[in-house]
Design a protein around this nucleic acid. Structure first.
Lengths: 181, 181
DNA sequence: ACAGCCATGTAACTCGTTACATGATTAC
DNA sequence: GTAATCATGTAACGAGTTACATGGCTGT
């Protein structure tokens, strides 16, 4: 029974694989906090739609704890996740970078606008870096090998390094644009 | 007449903004070559659909040169592009990174699979880097300030640096995974 | 002659979004 | 009591994909 699910489904399954049952609402919060850096954070409505589907496929199970419906992975869900991890071909990352896209058309803008484009991006980078750093520190204490958040921590470090490097690239571009090199 | 077009429309308009009229087929080739690194390369069918729409909006004009229909920017198209560049809010980049997503779930895999995951990604990075480098060298000769491909060159350098840094991150992660740090 | 590329499109479909709607609980 | 947060969903829609179909031109 090879159910072809989109990657986002497995991303949500993945969030549930850390053990704690989560409601749709909580799932969205986790996605906003961490998943959005490496994948996407689906819209609220999409989360619930997805939960219905996963439940329909028997990959998750509602655990009614009163007012809110939390879901936890079923054995089938764990298996599906394992199978996905081991057999699904991995594509190359897709980057949608509005700043790079605009810089490509830098010739259509006046120099001051190009400069502001990059400076604004530096600010945005700073902000995102801070947000990710917060996540990173929240993982401290469980980030040693064999601990629960070992891999999330590694990925967070990856992301932090990525932001830091992008910052230096942008600064470099700004310099090159000023003195034509 | 604020026609709300998706970013991809403006990306295609942008490709036409370099002066040369292009057919749908050629547009797709350019997108495959350069645009895909910073945005997406739309499917062939999507390119034609998009061209119809842009033509319908009067932003591009078919220049019939025999067997194939090439399109060039109209004045309205140029204006639309300028307006988009100067007034549309710029979102933060969206990254869909299947490798990071899987590494997040590294605890569900055996160590050897995690290792292979990262090693395979290194190979893929190498390949993409080579492809982009080819683009970069093809721009040489027109990449000086005030020349046509100045900004595309800057963006290509940005991309190259990004790939190179990602390589060092992955190598770092591999090291950290081996000796638990 | 046949393969491969150039060239253009249609149809069906999925993913995911925004807008909208509703109501319970909690904090001040 | 009232604002914010928690909680869940429906409906309409748009962007973009894959699969399919077609045909001319080019090189060997």
């Amino acid at each position: 029974m090879g159910q072809e699910l989109p990657v986002t489904s497995f991303a949500l399954l993945g969030l549930l694989s850390f053990g704690e049952p989560l409601t749709g609402y909580e799932l969205k919060q986790r996605a906003d906090k961490t998943l959005r850096f490496y994948w996407v954070s689906p819209a609220m409505s999409q989360v619930y739609t997805e939960l219905d589907r996963l439940n329909g496929h028997g990959l998750i199970r509602p655990v009614g704890d009163g007012r809110a419906t939390a879901y936890s992975l079923t054995d089938a869900g764990r298996t599906a996740l394992d199978t996905w991890l081991s057999t699904t071909p991995i594509g190359f990352p897709v980057l949608k970078h509005p700043v790079a896209l605009r810089l490509l058309l830098g010739a259509l803008m006046d120099p001051e606008s190009v400069r502001r484009l990059l400076l604004d991006h530096l600010d945005a980078l700073e902000e995102e870096h801070a947000a990710l750093e917060e996540v990173r520190t929240s993982l401290q204490g469980a980030d040693a090998p064999d601990q629960l958040f070992r891999y999330p921590s590694l990925v967070a470090d990856w992301g932090l390094s990525y932001f830091e490097h992008e910052k230096t690239i942008i600064e470099d571009l700004l310099r090159r644009i000023e003195d034509g090199s």
